[in-house]
């Protein structure tokens, strides 16, 4: 990825397992933002994707030392760019 073309912004739910990405936007209400914030996820955080589950199942990722499983719906409102 070179500097002229920044990585496209995609929902965390579509990222492949094993990829690293940075959070650029949270498309949720204050409740979601606050809940994620208390777990250490905020704009600018680096997230390592661990797994997806079939049939819109939960999305698992690691942020710092925390491994977190969240629903597909919330994961699709966390916008990230791969790094």
């Amino acid at each position: 990825m070179n500097d002229q073309t920044p990585a496209p912004t995609r929902p965390l739910s579509t990222i492949h397992s094993g990829c690293r990405c940075r959070v650029v936007r949270l498309d949720g209400g204050p409740n979601m933002t606050q809940r994620l914030d208390s777990m250490g996820l905020r704009i600018g955080s680096i997230v390592n994707k661990v797994s997806n589950n079939p049939f819109r199942g939960p999305v698992v990722f690691r942020i710092d030392q925390t491994e977190l499983a969240i629903g597909y719906g919330m994961a699709s409102r966390i916008m990230v760019e791969e790094i």
Binding site: E67, A69, I70, G71, M74
Partner: peptide, 10 residues
């Protein structure tokens, strides 16, 4: 039903 939101321990 709310979605899962769960810390996975080591």
């Amino acid at each position: 039903s709310p979605e899962i939101f769960l810390e996975v321990p080591s």
